[in-house]
Amino acid sequence: MEYFIQQLINGLTLGGIYALIALGYTMVYGIIQLINFAHGEFFAAGGYMGVILLSFLSANGYLATYPWLCLSGAIILSMAYCSLLATGVEKIAYKPLRKSSRLSVLLSALGMSIFIQNGLMLTQGVYDKAYPTIFSQGGFDFGNIKVSYMQIVMLLITILLLILLNLLVFKTRIGKAMRATAQDKTMSSLVGIKSDRIISLTFIIGASLAAAAGIMVGMYYGSVGYTMGFVPGIKAFAAAVLGGIGNITGAMIGGFLIGMIEIFGAGYISSEYKDVFAFIILIGVLYFMPTGIMGENIDDTRV
């Protein structure tokens, strides 16, 4: 039982990360029906920005004195950086291709993904970069169950970001415009919504969530590498599909579920094959219920 609860907590932490990345996929897919292949790279870029900023701050001694301020500053700055990156990628690689076939958009996204990945490698080096330690390694012990400070911080940040996103999408005018554009691009532009701007905004939001996830993963595992975006990207995509692609609540639920499945699969079945579970879920969901849990309406061309 204790093992189960321990795994549950680990699963929640990992699932939060997947949920944050999955949101970017699902929002972009919802609005322009494109699998943003470069999304995993935004996540990696976020992780790298985090390590750059935090080691800069730690070398100047700020990190030891104001850890919270430095952490939030680093997260906000790297979110801003990834927004900048995402707008650029969207303007260069996706916007001119909005009218062409899906295959060419997908390939152009793939090209961008390879480009960013290698850009990171060339500027930051081939080897993994170690994160400076911010919080002490300790945590709370409940009997045999350990919850580290890091996990609590991660969960808090994840929940905060998810609440903020929900408020933005469901309570503000911008959110309303986004939902309208996702439903019908032509109609929403007829009523005065600038769809290009909304699409850029969607990319920005998705990329900044991924950047936050990247920093947290870097802190949790202690290092970042330039290929770190690929596998979590696919798993988060699986999460988005599981929740029903295009559906924001679905992506959150799907992210947590995929995280749990991975951790429990690794804990109870086989840790070597832990990457396989997400893929099997992805294939199973697409085969048996392509609309996902939340049942987003999908027409013939999408599946």
């Binding site: 029906q33 494109l34 699998i35 899906r102 997908l106 596998v231 696919i234 995509f237 699986a238 599909v241 990457d275 396989v276 893929f279 099997i280 992805l282 294939i283 697409l286 085969y287 392509p290 013939d300 061309t301 999408r302 599946v303």
Partner: peptide, 17 residues
């Protein structure tokens, strides 16, 4: 049974498996 993007991502998953 799938088409387009979904097929792409599922084949990617199978390749990784």
């Amino acid at each position: 049974r799938m088409r387009g993007d979904y097929l792409a991502i599922v084949t990617l998953g199978f390749g990784e498996i």
